[in-house]
């Protein structure tokens, strides 16, 4: 043990004469320091988990009191959300439906685009274009959601309203398109990683058997990357369902169950963000919004756990029979 303080480790320190007792003492303090550092770091790394626990704790603390007023099933499946009426009604079913619809529709748009972009980047594009496109997708991911919401509001909405002769351009389709813009980078970059991780040997085998590039992509590369692609889709959906500003600004805000794709809706995050400012502190409305947050949290948590499970299972076994 000659970890002399201040010396560069790569250059052996000049051997100074040192008594055995001295170097033993140094070794001991060094060992103690190592143990302290390791445990301190372990604790700090654990903070992420603690934080998750704290989030749950405080959502529950502020959200559970609503269930003194109404039952869980009334809350989840009640079809009327009139939190400011007298008496108030706290049924979030229309909000859940709104969230689900914009999420599904946005993924119907984002999955093909995201996946195709990933295929283009990892399999087809020349090196230069590949780098540029990767940067573009990263910048797209970096667009602040409020800017996308603003864009949907002032450009897409008036255009849709005029073109399709609608009562309002702030509706499900508009919100889904803008959400898709947010979900595409997630889906594309994770799918691209998955495609990139497909062993070169599989592709070589396919080419050597007389397959075209398209056949190799469609029948070997994509199936082999399927677990990663599923993860990408799930995380893309999680991103879309939890996104706030876009749905707040362009979904229209009507808390009724929609009857068509051009109806306006009020997804859960929009409801929370729009109303929290007005809800009196620790009122029924305030608690109901936190309870909506609980629902949202557990939906996205479930998505993330499933994604985590898929990517781990396949990491261990390889992709088995397809």
């Amino acid at each position: 043990m000659c970890a002399v303080a201040g010396s560069k480790p790569a250059v052996p320190a000049k051997p100074k004469k040192r008594t055995i007792m001295e170097s033993r003492k140094r070794a001991l303090t060094s060992r103690v320091r190592e143990i302290i550092i390791k445990n301190l770091f372990a604790f700090l790394a654990f903070i992420s988990v603690l934080l998750l626990g704290l989030i749950v704790l405080f959502l529950f603390r502020e959200g559970l009191p609503i269930f003194k007023q109404i039952s869980v099933s009334q809350f989840l499946f009640g079809s009327a959300w009139y939190p400011t009426y007298n008496p108030p009604e706290y049924g979030i079913w229309p909000l859940i439906v709104g969230s689900v619809i914009v999420t599904v529709l946005s993924c119907l748009i984002a999955v093909p685009f995201g996946l195709l972009a990933a295929v283009y980047i990892s399999e087809i594009a020349p090196a230069r274009i590949k780098e540029i496109l990767k940067s573009i997708i990263e910048l797209l991911a970096g667009l602040p959601s409020v800017v996308l919401g603003f864009f949907g509001m002032v450009i897409l909405a008036p255009w849709m309203q005029e073109t399709f002769d609608l009562p309002t351009g702030l509706n499900i389709v508009n919100a889904s398109v803008m959400l898709a813009v947010m979900a595409i980078p997630t889906i594309s970059s994770i799918s691209e990683d998955a495609l990139y991780a497909v062993p070169r040997e599989y592709k070589e085998a396919s080419y050597a058997l007389g397959a075209t590039k398209y056949e190799t992509i469609a029948k070997v590369a994509i199936p082999a990357a399927l677990s990663g692609i599923s993860t990408a889709v799930i995380l893309g959906m999680a991103r879309a369902i939890g996104e706030t500003m876009v749905v707040l600004m362009v979904a229209g805000g009507s808390a009724a169950i929609p009857r068509g794709l051009f109806d306006s809706v009020r997804p859960m995050p929009a409801s929370i963000a729009a109303e929290m400012g007005e809800a009196p502190f620790q009122s029924g409305h305030y608690h109901a919004l936190f309870a909506t947050g609980i629902v949202l949290f557990f939906i996205t948590l479930a998505f993330n756990l499933v994604a985590d499970h898929i990517s781990n299972r396949f990491k261990e076994e390889g992709s088995g029979t397809l």
Binding site: P199, E201, A205, G210
Partner: peptide
Amino acid sequence: IRQRIGMVFQKPNPFPKSIFNNITYA
């Protein structure tokens, strides 16, 4: 050309598919 000139590689590289589907691929 590759359909008529087959190749076997250094490391065995079966597809992650069933034995049957490996053979029927080409």
